[in-house]
Structures are given as C-alpha cells and as structure tokens.
Design a binder for these strands. Structure first.
Lengths: 193, 193, 193, 193
DNA sequence: AATGAATGAGTATTCATTCAT
DNA sequence: TATGAATGAATACTCATTCAT
C-alpha cells in the first residue's frame, strides 16, 4: 500500500509547502519533488499524476481533520457544545498550519472543475458530520424543529469557510481561534436579539 | 470612455457566455472574440488584458447587482426586511441568469490569487451594503447590540454564497428564490429555538 | 487553403533537412521551426501536430513524384518502356535529392505504426501507377498473361525500394540512375536466360 | 556463456511476444521482464542494454532461419530449385510464427538507424546465401551470365521482403506459402513472356 | 544470481499579446 | 478603428538503467 510508505506523506507535505509558498499555478512537479527530496520520477511511483497528488493531499488532510473533530465532540453532551467544538477545532487546526490554510482556502480552489468535484466528494464526510450534529440538536430539542437541515448546514459551513478565507486573505492577521465562540453564538442565535 | 461603447458590453457578455459554456480554463481570448463577433486584436482596444475583461465583467455585473438591491431595500423600514430583500434579490438575480451564476460561483473562482483579490475589491461594495443593514439593525434594536459586525457580515455573505454555490453545483435543480425566507430566518434566529 | 501558402512548403522543406541531418528522433519541432525561420507556434498555424508535418511531407513529395513519373511515361508506347521510365525517374528523383532519399528510405520508417499506415495510404497512388503499367503490358501482350498483378507489383516496388535503401545505407556511394536499365531488365526477364 | 543459459532465450522469447502484441514503442524493458517472469534488473545480467536484446533477438531468430534454409537447399541440384526452397521456407517459417513475422517486418523497422545498421549486419549472412545460389546458377548456366549479382540479390530479397510485409500489413489474411511458386517464377522469368 | 525502488533527462503544444496593414 | 498572422515562453510525464540489498 503506497499510502503508508513514508515517501507518500513526504511528497504530500512537500506539495503543501510548495503550493502555499509559490501558488497553485507555480507549483510544478519538479519543485514538489525537490522540496520532498526525491527525483521527479519518484513522484510517479506514488501518484498517478499531478492531480492525484492534490486529491490525495486533500483526502489525507481532511481525513485527519474529520478524525480529530470527531474525537473532540465525542464526549460532549449537547449538540450546541459539539458545534462549538467543531468551530473551535476547525479554526484551531487551520490556524496551527498556515501553509495548509492557504492551500485549502485559496490555492486549491484554482484547480479545474473536475478536480474540484473530487475535492467536494471528500468534503462530503465533513458536511455529514455537521448534519449529524444538527439532527442530534433537533432530536434533543436544542435546535428548532423546523430547521431545514441542508440550509442550516450551508449556513454553518459557509460561515466557517468565509471566516477562514477572510482570515487568510487578510494575511492571517487576526487571531482565528478566538473568533470561535462568537461565530458559534451567531450560528445558534443568529443576528436577532 | 471605452465603458460606454457598445463593443465593451458586447465583449463582456461574450465572455460570460464563453466562460459559462466552456469553463474558465477553456475560455481563450480568441473564443471570446469570436463569440463577440470581433477580431482578437479588437479586444485589446477595449481591455488592457484578459484579466481586465474578467474584472470588468465582475464590476459591471456586481454594479447592477448592488444597484438593484439598494433600490429594493430603500423603502423598507426594518433592517430585517432589508436583509430579506437582499437575500431574495441575490437569489432572484442569479436564478434569472444561469450563465452569470455559473461564472461567478464556479468559474471565476479558478482565477489566480491576484485576480481574486481584485474581485474582492469589487465585492467590498456589496459587503458594505450588508454592513449598513447590520448597523441599522443594531441601532434600531432589532439585532443584538453585542453583534460583531465583521463576523455577522461573514455569516450572511458566507451563507448566501454557500447556498448559491450548492445550487449551481447541483445543476440548478432546486428553486433558489424559494429558499430566501428560510435562509433569512436562519440568519436572524440561528439554529436555536 | 494552408497548403498553398509559402510557409507551408517552407516548413516541409525545413523538416526534410532537419530529419535528414539529425535523424527522425532528433528532429524536434523547435529545430524544424528554426530551420524554417519561423516561431515554434507558427508551425501549428499550418499543421495540426508534428505527425501532420510528416504526413504532409510525404504527401507533397510523393505527389510530385507520381506527377513527374506519370508525365514521363505518357508518351511511351510500350509497357516495358513505361516501366523503364518509372525505374529511371524513381532513381533520378531520389538521387537528385539526397536529403529526401534519406528521409523516405531510413528516417520516416522509424515512425510509429499509425503514421506508417497513413504513409502507406499515400503510397497507394504510386502502387496503382505500377498496376496500370502491368495491366497495359498484359493487354498488349508484352507481359505474361498469367502474371499475378499483386505479386508482380510487389516485385517491382520491392526491388526498386531495396535498391534505393541499399544505396542510401551505403552512404550514396554508387551511381543510382545508372542502375535503372539493369534493374529494368531484371524485372522484365528475371534471373533466367 | 550467457547465450546458453535458459533465461537468455526466455527473455528473447518474451521480447518477441511483447513487441508483437504491444508494438515496438510500447515494448518497455519492464514489460519484457514481466513477460519473461524475471525482475527488471535481471535483464541486465544477460544483455548489455535494450538494444542488445533486439540485436540478439534478430541474431538468434535469423540464425535458425539461415540454418534451416541451408539444410533444405543442400540436396537440391539446380540453383533454381534452391531458390524455390529459399522462397518457400522463408514464407513457411514466417507464416508459422506470426509474432516473429510482425516483429521482423513491422516493429523492428521502427528502430533507429544505428540499430538497423546492426540488424543489416546480421542480414548479411542471409544475403550471402542468396549470392551463393546466384553464383551457382550463373556457373551452371541456369542464370544469365550478365547478371549483376548485387542487383539480382536486391531483387530477390526485395521481392520476398515486400511480399511478406504486404502479407503482415494485410493482417496475415492470405496464404503466404502458396505464393512461393509464383514468386519464384517471377524471380526467374520476370514479367516478360 | 536476482531483485525492484529510485533516478532524471528530454519535448510537443497552447494561447495571451503584438503590430504591420 | 479594426484586423488576424505571428510570436515564444513554459511544463508534466516516461522509461532505460543502476545499485544496495
């Protein structure tokens, strides 16, 4: 299994660095290979083509993402607390890895539609996690029974994503994790009183 | 002034069609010229370069967007009503122009960071419109006094944007304008009871 | 029509020179462009791709070949005389253009099967010319009535081709046209007495 | 001596299969190794490089070819009969091994000039066999005394080769050995009456 | 003897932009 | 104004060969 060999992760980590520092369109395979400390050809022993590097990158990183967040929300009793954990850790994980934040929020979105559809496939796991929290919240009576799950999920993900993107676009200037509580409050209570 | 000459809009409209039908990376200048019924070189009498076409496209379309929405909210008394008008018309305008929806939600996001920063510049007018509604809502006591304007704006824009993108990605299948009221309720009241 | 523009022939002639002097596998498009005195991209205004240059090359040169030979045999009364003209001019035309001889006998044969099939398509015109001579010879009673046209054509073409290839492989040392009469005699009378 | 070890022939036979089924340019060393049931590196214990495989392949196969034909013509009294034996067995041997026919007539000719010169070196043995038959025919008075040996040899080899190539190119459709007698007659008597 | 993971050189093609007419 | 022929920079991927085990 290629995915477990050290060079697989080595190349993916190199790709994150190269894309973050040079931009998507300046991230040539040869640059990634150099950063990973392998020959150009070695890349193709572990990945089918350049696109495969990017999909695998997203799969690996998003996989860890989902895993960690699932772990954090496990012990929590209320859906609201779980949502807070999700927002907090989403912000925390990305603020701890600036390169990854730049890659996921800015650079990878420049990829073509085909690649973006595959990335969306990976994202589905995360969106389903949000859905589970929403359903639990409704069942427990924490959230409104008339909630449209899809729209609520789009609000949650859209708000988180827009906040992170805005943070990245503003050159990572403000402190992201400290926004989690306020964002959480907005998602639960909205703008109203 | 180039912007008022017929060929200026002719080329921009051609660009929308070509990008929507071929995708961002298959929207060559020569294709846009052909669609517009002019020679390749003529493009450069009206636009500095290809990027300038895309920025102008966004400026023109977003300008109309803001204008119409401002008009619609003018007479409304409450901030909540104004927000509803904004969501409703945002959805309505895009659902009336599928080509434009595809271009703004999917294709134009594939542009490089530099171009996206310039697009964000144009977006600021729209975001300031949201800010004005929020401030009015706080001042009138409709919205929570402790609202973080920036975060609230990011929630509103993020939610609207995510909803539209999801609609476009699902091949424009569901009815977008009919979601406005529910989205509005979510933005005002959140997920909670 | 691209085929009539001067650059079309200019590029083909450059290809003959470059392939003859560098070999098929060292005949890069950029080398051909340089030899033709045009930019790399200009090649693609006149040819679909590299393969298209080679096919067009063969078509153009073989077209001239067939045309000239048809002209030469026109006035001849007997099939035997016509066959002599064919051999003589085949040898003469190639011995007058060493570059072309090298390209058709050695270099172009290194192309892949697909390209060779297309080249064979072009060759058919020449083989049909041979067939017409054979049929006339049989009808006029010059050639044996029991002649198998296909085999006879294969003998004629095979013998001519092998002779030319051998001449090219021996570095064009001996005088090719002077062999025509002897080759002609062999084709008519065979090895026997 | 490498040539006598089983893996030497094993690799050569694998090469014939792989080249025949995949084409010259798709016959990678790794594919040949896999077909032969050895590791890539093992190839290089038996052959200097890839070219060496192809030359050895040709040497081995052509060696058997010459051996068998020499055996067949040994007892024959006349040069004409010997020539018939040569044509017949040339056709028979190749029609019995389609893979080999494809490799020698089509695929190996795509090799570069250098390799083809080396292959010609191997062919010389076969051409000398033809020469010996021709000389015997002249001495015995069967063939014309004024025969140019080189040209006659080129006619014989060129005709046989063109016939086989044509057979391979027509997907081995017609029966090759049954053409031998007619080809033989053509070579002895030519097209004339 | 045998393995197979690693190497790294080499090239066709696209397309935004220019400028002579 | 308008044209469109010409330009030329820039890059992913393959595969013969090696060598540590």
């Amino acid at each position: 299994m290629k995915r477990n060999k050290p060079k697989f992760r080595q190349i993916i980590d190199a790709a994150v660095v190269v894309i973050a520092e040079n931009g998507y369109h300046q991230a040539q395979v040869s640059k990634i290979a150099k950063q990973a400390g392998v020959a150009d050809g070695t890349i193709y022993l572990y990945f089918k083509n350049k696109e495969d590097i990017l999909i695998s990158l997203f799969q690996e990183k998003m996989g860890v993402f989902i895993e960690i967040i699932e772990e954090k929300i496990e012990g929590k009793d209320s859906a609201a607390e779980k949502l807070l954990m999700l927002v907090e850790n989403h912000f925390k994980l990305l603020s701890e890895d600036h390169h990854l934040a730049i890659v996921t929020q800015l650079e990878l979105r420049q990829s073509n539609k085909e690649l973006r559809l595959k990335i969306n496939e990976v994202l589905k796991g995360y969106l389903m996690l949000i859905d589970r929290i929403l359903i639990e919240g409704i069942e427990k009576g924490e959230f409104s029974g008339s909630l449209d799950i899809r729209l609520a999920r789009q609000m949650i993900f859209g708000t988180i994503d827009e906040t992170v993107t805005s943070w990245v676009m503003n050159d990572l200037k403000f402190d992201l994790p400290s926004q989690a509580e306020k964002v959480h409050r907005l998602l639960i209570c909205g703008c109203g009183k």
